[in-house]
């Protein structure tokens, strides 16, 4: 009995906790090493086959987009109509000029698929970066400051949300005669930022009421510290997921616009443009259509799969 009625002082029992007795190591799943949430998510990602497959695919696609010349010696712009007009694919000739066959002007489809990746990726990545920066900023302002800014930005997003994405960008692009990669990117970003803004606004509103944000305010932390040290790192996860998935859709949008003749100007290689060219031969020479279309599908699928894998890793509810 005496040992039970004895009340250890705060420091004593604290010492017992610290002393590296089994007591501490039994406390929750506390491993020996510091483990950040980011590192945890990364561990989860690496074990996810969805992530491994999509990650490898995206890696290959990025490599092709950056250095298409590494994978083929053929020139995608000049064809030999006389010898190769709509030449059939030769699936045995892996990595060779005639692997995917030739198009209506005798250009190597393999080379065109490779070089087409560059524009798709540049537009996709570029739009995503622009949209995440601008939409994210808008969403953060609306979510954190609320009141007038929220009303203003939310109404603005409503207006933009009402414009059909593709139709809107067609109208905008129609006004340009010289449609460079930058113009297409700008047009898509101009109409596409609202989704990220909404996601960011929601995440910021949830986060700004968290106790740790209140705790930082109670310490006298300034707005900048609260926004960038406390709110942003905790609100960014859904934005990353949405951005990854939308990257695929921006690539589709660029291809669709090119297909309709409103995308990248003449001379630029684009999967959409090639698909458009291929439609006229669809009955007898479907390969002209199928290879660029396949490349487009695989790329989009890779980004959507990546988005799903990231969502799974970041969403604590699924753990």
């Amino acid at each position: 009995m005496p040992d039970l009625t004895k009340t250890p002082s705060a420091s004593e029992e604290a010492a017992a906790i610290v002393a590296g007795t089994p007591v501490t190591s039994d406390a929750g799943p506390a491993p020996e090493k510091p483990r950040s949430l980011g590192a945890d998510a990364w561990r989860g990602l690496r074990r996810n086959p969805l992530f491994v497959v999509s990650g490898l695919l995206i890696l290959v696609i990025l490599l092709v987009a950056a250095f298409p010349g590494l994978f083929t010696g053929a020139n995608p712009d000049t064809g030999d109509q006389a010898n190769h007009f709509l030449g059939k694919p030769n699936l045995g000739h892996v990595f060779q000029e005639d692997w995917f066959g030739y198009d209506g002007t005798g250009r190597s489809l393999y080379a065109r698929v490779l070089y087409g990746a560059r524009n798709s990726i540049i537009v996709g990545l570029g739009v995503t970066v622009l949209v995440t920066l601008f939409g994210g900023l808008m969403g953060m302002l609306a979510g954190y400051f609320g009141g007038f800014w929220d009303s203003l930005i939310s109404r603005l997003t409503d207006v933009f949300f009402g414009i059909p994405f593709l139709l809107g960008s067609m109208v905008v692009l129609n006004a340009f005669t010289d449609r460079t990669v930058w113009v297409v990117m700008g047009a898509l970003a101009f109409l596409g930022w609202t989704q990220i803004a909404r996601v960011m606004r929601g995440a910021v509103i949830t986060t700004k009421h968290a106790d740790y944000v209140v705790a930082a305010k109670a310490l006298g932390a300034g707005t900048r510290r609260i926004l960038f040290r406390h709110i942003l790192p905790n609100a960014i996860a859904p934005v990353i997921v949405v951005a990854t998935i939308s990257l695929g859709t921006y690539i589709v949008a660029e291809s669709t616009l090119s297909y309709l003749g409103l995308g990248l100007g003449d001379g630029s290689i684009s999967w959409g443009g090639d698909i458009s060219d291929g439609t006229q031969f669809i009955r007898n020479f479907p390969h002209v259509l199928l290879f660029p279309a396949g490349a487009l599908s695989i790329t989009v699928l890779a980004f959507i799969m990546m988005g799903d894998a990231v969502r799974e890793a970041l969403d604590p509810k699924l753990r």
Binding site: P34, S36, L37, D211, Y212, L219, G220, A221, G222, P233
Partner: peptide
């Protein structure tokens, strides 16, 4: 604070959390 699960920023290390008051003051 009441809830020890929500009152600490999950993205910061313990050192950063306890050291933050010194950064602000």
């Amino acid at each position: 604070f009441q809830d020890p699960y929500t009152s600490l920023n999950p993205r910061m290390t313990v050192g950063d959390i306890i050291g933050e008051p010194f950064e602000i003051h």
